[in-house]
């Protein structure tokens, strides 16, 4: 498997990264280099192997349904690049 610069453009779109043609060319080449290295994995037969998504094998932690309000909501808003009243503002979506 090798990726074309068209594939790279699609991936950049999915990842919401605006890349120049030069960057795209460089990343395409580097990704191919890394993926080529990753082809090692193809040699491994893993059909009967279970994946390890986490090294822990317990169940997830559960929290009691209790409300505890965060005290610095104003602080969270202060980090906003653009805020009106108590809302974050984004430019038009469509």
């Amino acid at each position: 498997m090798s990726i074309s610069s068209e594939d790279a453009r699609h991936v950049a779109g999915l990842a919401r990264l605006e890349l120049t043609d030069k960057e795209l060319r460089a990343y395409t080449e580097q990704l191919n280099q890394i993926l080529n290295y990753a082809r090692e994995l193809e040699k491994l037969h893993t059909d009967n192997i279970e994946p390890t998504y986490s090294s822990l094998n317990t169940g997830t932690l559960l929290r009691e349904d209790k409300v505890c309000n965060f005290t610095d909501q104003a602080g969270l808003l202060e980090n906003g690049p653009e805020v009106a009243g108590s809302s974050f503002v984004v430019p038009r979506i469509l």
Partner: peptide
């Protein structure tokens, strides 16, 4: 670029804002 961190201010729409802020 919505709630914190760098935002490209010249983007005319949200999609462009996402892409440029991250780039």
């Amino acid at each position: 670029g919505v709630r914190f961190g760098h935002r490209n201010k010249s983007a005319r729409g949200t999609l462009e804002m996402f892409k440029r802020s991250r780039a």
